[in-house]
Amino acid sequence: MKNLSEIQAFVARSVQRRDPLPPDPAAAREAELALVGNARLSAVEMLDVYREQFFLRHVGALREDFPALEHMLGDAGFDDAACAYLAAIPPRDFSLRDLGARLPGFLREAAPWSADPRHADLARFEWAYVDAWDAPDAPPLDPAKIAAMPEDGWARARVVFHPSLTLLDLCIPAHRYRAAVRAGEPVEPPSLERTMCAVYMGHETLECAELEPGAYALVTRLARGVPLGAACEEAVAETRAEPAAFEAEIGGWFQGWTQRGWVVDLT
């Protein structure tokens, strides 16, 4: 192997193999073509140092971002899922920060993890924290905007939310499970229970708030850019709420969202 790109392709291919290289005679022969061993390590053992580090680094990074998923799957189970993910979707972004971006989708599609919807939903929930951490900043809503809104302008108003906000409709109470795992409390993986919540950057820390169905139906529509009047109508229809009762809740919801810093503009 004389060509630099050929050598690098060979090393890259080798270090992504999950099993140790030294026991494989073919790997040892191939390593000898590119590398020179010494008194400490043979050529294939040298290559295996990098292979081992590849998995320690990447599985470690995934463990850091998905602590509750690791707890649900167990150490060995998480290793299996992470290694299968790395094999199916090799790391391609320059930063390890993005490594887990496609893990929820992988768990939704790939057996055996796809058989249990809790895996993908828990990963989706945990990834929202990664996304919220470095989401762009946005100043809070200027109260003058509310004061300046004419009474008949509210129906057409569109709400702009903070970029860190992720709204999630999950099959488990992932927020309670993750909180318990992170606190080191003994906790069993949660049973199926539809849960709607929002992950967002609070004043200094990452936060999660559970949402009641009406609030979730409304906020998801507003986040998609639907004007307030139409969003309310759609949310009432979806939740089959009594319109007057729904309307009575809106002010409180909006106030809560504003206090949490979710609402950054009205247009």
């Binding site: 690098q8 890259a12 990098y50 580090q53 790391p91 391609r92």
Partner: peptide
């Protein structure tokens, strides 16, 4: 890294 793979190592 090489091709579309980033190894995140200092090789």
């Amino acid at each position: 890294g090489t091709g579309s793979v980033n190894i995140h190592d200092l090789l």
